[in-house]
C-alpha cells in the first residue's frame, strides 16, 4: 500500500469499528427491550389488564 498505508488502514479500521458498534448497539438494545417486555408480561401486565 506504499507510503499511505497508515491512512488507508485507519480509514477501514475506523469504518469497521463504527459499523460493528452500530450492530452491537442494535443487538444489545433489542435484547434489553425483549427482556423488559418478557418480565412485564410475566408479572401479568398487558394492555387488556387495564380493563380487569
Amino acid at each position: 500500500m506504499g507510503t499511505h498505508a497508515f491512512f488507508i488502514t485507519l480509514s477501514y479500521a475506523l469504518t469497521a469499528l463504527v459499523i460493528a458498534g452500530l450492530i452491537l448497539r442494535a443487538v444489545i438494545d433489542h435484547r434489553l427491550q425483549t427482556r423488559a417486555l418478557t418480565e412485564l408480561e410475566a408479572r401479568g401486565v398487558s394492555r387488556r389488564s387495564r380493563r380487569g
Partner: peptide, 17 residues
Amino acid sequence: MRTEILRRRVRTLTILE
C-alpha cells in the same frame, strides 16, 4: 425500528403497571 416498537410497548406496559 423493531427495537423501538418493543421499547414503546415496554413503556406502555410500565405505565399500565
